[in-house]
């Protein structure tokens, strides 16, 4: 009894704090595997690169490949579409940066910064609003219209109108040959 009211720290106080501290660290360390198991597995991350043959794509046409379980748009743009995209002043773009994984994060969203070759636009077909697949050649800007909540993209895949905050993402990619792409 005397111990419990004494102002001096007791052995029990010490054990209480030490056990509590070990317990807290233990709980935190045990929690991590239970949280981390939800993250993508190594095999999912490994299957993240594809090659795509674009030899049959005609001007004005878009083909869709599957990349990281998402649609990947490869669009062969007509001269008119390219000219339209280039005529847009940067001040009219809701998202001023290029969102091009091959360029620095702050590269401006000019049409030139959205592709390697003007004719070929390669973007991830995931609306930056809530992830639907936009439909090609619809909307007011000649690019894509997302039917889910009405976002509109231009012929450079840049957001022009609607709730989506960002331009369609340009993935890391390279031309292996003039008709073959490596994505990811």
């Amino acid at each position: 009894m005397a111990n419990e009211t004494s102002a001096e720290p007791t052995r029990r106080d010490f054990l209480y704090i030490a056990t509590g501290a070990v317990g807290a660290v233990g709980v935190a360390l045990t929690a991590w595997p239970f949280i981390d198991q939800m993250n993508p597995t190594g095999s999912v991350l490994a299957a993240a690169t594809i090659e795509a043959d674009i030899s049959t794509v005609q001007p004005g046409q878009q083909v869709i490949f599957t990349w990281r379980s998402h649609p990947l748009f490869v669009r062969r743009r007509t001269p008119k579409e390219i000219a339209e995209a280039r005529a847009v002043p940067l001040s009219e773009l809701p998202d001023p940066v290029a969102r091009n994984a091959n360029l620095p994060d702050d590269a401006p969203a000019t049409d030139e910064n959205r592709e390697f070759k003007p004719e070929w636009l390669v973007v991830v077909g995931v609306c930056t609003h809530l992830g639907c697949t936009p439909t090609v050649l619809e909307g007011d800007y000649g690019g894509w219209l997302c039917h889910c909540h009405g976002s509109q993209y231009d012929t450079a895949g840049r957001i022009r109108k609607g709730p989506a905050p960002q331009n369609l993402a340009v993935p890391t990619y390279a031309f292996l040959t003039p008709t073959r792409l490596k994505i990811g």
């Binding site: 939800m38 993250n39 999912v44 990281r68 992830g131 905050p165």
Partner: peptide, 27 residues
């Protein structure tokens, strides 16, 4: 993914943790 607007990568991180992948999938 809206949380990306608070801190870059935060929202995408949470989403891919929920998915167990790059999008809704088997996992």
């Amino acid at each position: 993914t809206a949380f990306d607007q608070i801190h870059k990568g935060l929202g995408t991180g949470i989403a891919s943790w929920l998915w167990g992948g790059f999008g809704v999938s088997d996992a």
